[in-house]
Simulated scan of single mutants.
Amino acid sequence: MGTLENGFMAILAGAGPMGLGAIDYAVHGPKPPKVLVVTDINQERLDRAASIYTQEDAKKHGVDLYYVNTANIDNVENYLLSFTNGRGFDDVFVFAPVRELVELADKILARDGCLNFFAGPSDPNFSALLNFYNVHYNSTHVVGTSGGNTDDMIEALDLMAKGIVNPAAMITHIGGLNCVAQTTLNLPKIPGREKAYIHKH
């Protein structure tokens, strides 16, 4: 059914490439939230995100957009809940496979809230605590996103073609196929986000 239109949304660890795409879709997509809070622990990434998806532009689409560096906040749970007046978030997206982040997402869910675990862990035993009292009595639920289907791809291409979303923000490097080997060998040393390779016939 998608996210709750005019609801409260949080994107945790959301200033990376996939998070940028989520911000774009949340603000410019068909069902924007009323409040969108994006967190990260890297101020440089947050500043870049804020320069691309500005609060002013979000406001034009009816979204109150906030960027939060949680690195030095003592009680992150209470701080984030303050954006909802203690009500909780209807949709919480987790963009990093970190146990504490998943557990934080669970704690800030509103009644009938949805935790969307977008980050793909490499550890097959990755686990986190989940409040099953809230699952039973508050109807909270968890979904995992590991890619889309054909309909999702068609929708994404349609949104791009209409200029509603722009995936360019997710890419910081573009090179030809001759760059693939060198880039792969030096990935940890290369700053930026996604790397795109273009092959010309």
Score class of each variant (00 low, 15 high):
L115R: 02
L104F: 03
A105V: 03
Y53A: 08
H136L: 08
V98H: 05
G29H: 14
V102C: 09
L115V: 01
A128F: 10
I52R: 14
N78H: 06
E56R: 15
F95L: 12
I41P: 00
G86K: 03
P32R: 11
D57T: 12
F89V: 03
R99L: 08
K107I: 03
A71Y: 06
V102R: 05
N69K: 09
P30M: 14
V102T: 03
L101V: 04
V76W: 00
L81Q: 10
A110I: 05
R87N: 01
P124C: 03
I73A: 13
N85Q: 07
A119N: 03
Q43P: 07
R99F: 02
K31V: 12
F95M: 13
D40F: 00
P124V: 03
D47M: 13
N125L: 00
L65D: 08
L36C: 11
R45N: 15
L36K: 07
A110F: 10
A110W: 12
L115I: 02
D47R: 07
V35N: 09
R99M: 13
D112Y: 13
L36E: 08
Q55M: 14
A119Q: 05
Q43L: 10
D74E: 15
F118H: 05
A105H: 05
L130T: 06
D47C: 14
S51Q: 13
D91F: 00
A96N: 10
N72A: 13
L129R: 02
Y67T: 10
T70F: 00
V98Y: 06
F118L: 06
Q55C: 11
A49G: 13
Y66K: 15
F95H: 06
G113W: 10
I73R: 12
Y66P: 02
N69C: 07
D106S: 14
G88V: 04
D74G: 08
D74K: 15
L115M: 15
A49P: 12
N72V: 01
N125Y: 04
V94S: 05
N72S: 14
T70M: 13
A96M: 09
R45M: 13
G88H: 08
N85L: 09
A105R: 04
P32Y: 14
A119H: 07
V35M: 12
A96H: 10
A71P: 02
P124M: 06
V102N: 09
V68W: 11
T54R: 12
P30L: 15
H136D: 04
D112C: 14
K34G: 06
V37E: 04
L65Y: 13
L80K: 05
S127M: 06
F118D: 00
P121A: 02
R45E: 13
L104H: 08
N42I: 04
S127A: 10
A96V: 03
N69G: 11
V38A: 11
D112N: 15
N125P: 00
Y133E: 07
A105F: 08
I52D: 11
V135E: 03
